[in-house]
């Protein structure tokens, strides 16, 4: 019996969280200078998403848990170096750099939503440092999002898979333990692809 070649990695909550966060972040960013109402409500939505995601990080499915994607800094650095050399190990769940990115983004978004809520209280209304911290962290987050996209692209190319699509469907290719077998499968796939190609 051949094991199934695909495995469900991202559960429905993780995927819904991810894309809801993308949409609400874009809406919050666009509305910042246009509409207080839209900006504040998208901010509240982000805060609610963050809280549920953090809870899910403790009680959720295997690959959604913090314990499955928090690595020590040395492992993360080594992974980044390997990635740049295109020889990084493939992880079915989050790789060490991806895990670190999640933590960084969660922390930044928590700072943004907290300062955002502070800004509309009478205590912190018009207080400069709160606004500055809010804006600086937003810019920092934009930088992180750029790196996140670059990382997704790099890892997708490196391991010949569509990670964006995986975050939509939840499915990923199973990680082969046996390298030799892996190579054989690859060869067979290539042959099959060629046959299919000629079939057209």
């Amino acid at each position: 019996m051949k094991p199934p070649s695909k495995i469900k990695v991202w559960d429905a909550f993780v995927r819904l969280f991810h894309w809801s966060l993308v949409v609400s972040f874009v809406v919050a960013w666009i509305s910042a200078e246009q509409s207080d109402r839209v900006h504040e409500w998208s901010g509240y939505l982000i805060a609610a998403l963050l809280i549920t995601r953090i809870a899910w990080g403790f009680v959720g499915t295997k690959h959604a848990r913090f314990s499955s994607f928090i690595y020590n800094p040395v492992t993360i650095l080594k992974f980044l170096l390997d990635s740049l050399c295109f020889r990084a190990k493939r992880y079915v769940g989050h790789n060490p750099a991806g895990g670190a990115m999640i933590i960084a983004l969660l922390v930044c978004l928590l700072v943004i939503t907290t300062t955002g809520i502070m800004m509309i209280t009478t205590t912190f209304w018009g207080i400069k440092w709160v606004e500055e911290l809010h804006e600086i962290t937003v810019n920092l987050t934009l930088g992180l999002i750029f790196l996140h996209l670059a990382g997704v692209l790099l890892a997708s190319l490196e391991h010949q898979e569509n990670l964006v699509m995986s975050m939509v469907t939840g499915w990923k290719r199973r990680n082969e333990k046996n390298k030799k077998r892996n190579r054989m499968v690859q060869k067979r796939k290539k042959k099959k692809a060629q046959e299919n190609w000629h079939g057209f």
Binding site: V22, V26, W29, I30, I145, L149, N162, V164, M165
Partner: peptide, 13 residues
């Protein structure tokens, strides 16, 4: 698919 997601984000920005 990557392009489908990245392009709107950059365009929005």
């Amino acid at each position: 698919y990557k392009i489908l997601f990245v392009v709107p984000m950059i365009a929005a920005a």
